[in-house]
Design a binder for these strands. Structure first.
Lengths: 117, 117
DNA sequence: GAGCTTGTCAACCATCTGGTTGAGCACCGA
DNA sequence: TCGGTGCTCAACCAGATGGTTGACAAGCTC
């Protein structure tokens, strides 16, 4: 079983599943309601929902024979945190690089290749 | 060819590729340097980098026979925007639901099923 | 030029994925 | 209890994916 972050990214890599998430953000829905707009079989949509469920993006309740699907927004934080961490890191590095370049222009010194980056 | 958002999510669904991104956030690196920590072949890492490249997460330069790999942080925004959009939407809905529940408690009226959600 | 270094391309293989159809379970309504 | 509704499970199939190895291009260095 892969880690949750991988599962979340993989789940959202599919446009149909992203669309499902988009619609579930508006409100809970049954499998049949969710499947209606697509020309694929109900079973295919059910599979997509299972992927979203094991990724933790969605939970399924019970209402007689219906299985209302509910979006779990908290999992998004997992991704956001991962993304933000490396985006900020990269941006800080750019800032440092800019500073280095500016310093180089100021002094017109030899680059020296002293840094790892 | 799938849309870029799908490609970005798919690219980051692999732990090795997320690790590569994490290391590239620290600084540019050559393919050999990036491949060193893993026990897979250099070709496998080269393939991973190609996936990251076609997703727009990474660019490759030239330095003699070396191909320094560079992280492109802007693409992260694409994901962040998508995520934030639906997270906020879902959270607003929760807030509205809370309000409805609170109102129901106040009045003790019949639910009436008047809303879609 | 010969040979090492760095990396890509191509072919192949096992596994995963998204789709299908068919069967069947759970539940409601008559 | 009989049938219809809502959905899942299982088996199967085509194509994508991640890994391998082998060949080779590009570029320094001797």
């Amino acid at each position: 079983m892969p880690d949750q972050l991988s599962q979340v990214f993989a789940a959202l890599a599919d446009p149909t599943r992203r669309d499902l998430v988009a619609r579930l953000a508006v409100g809970d829905a049954t499998v049949g309601q969710l499947a209606a707009p697509y020309d694929v079989s109900l079973q295919a949509v059910s599979k997509h929902l299972k992927v979203l469920e094991t990724a933790g993006l969605v939970t399924r309740g019970r209402d007689a024979q219906r299985r209302p699907v509910h979006l779990e927004a908290e999992v998004f934080d997992l991704m956001t945190k991962w993304i933000e961490r490396y985006r900020q890191q990269a941006e800080e590095r750019f800032a440092r690089l800019d500073a280095v370049l500016a310093a180089m222009n100021d002094t017109s010194a030899t680059p020296e290749e002293g840094q790892t980056a």
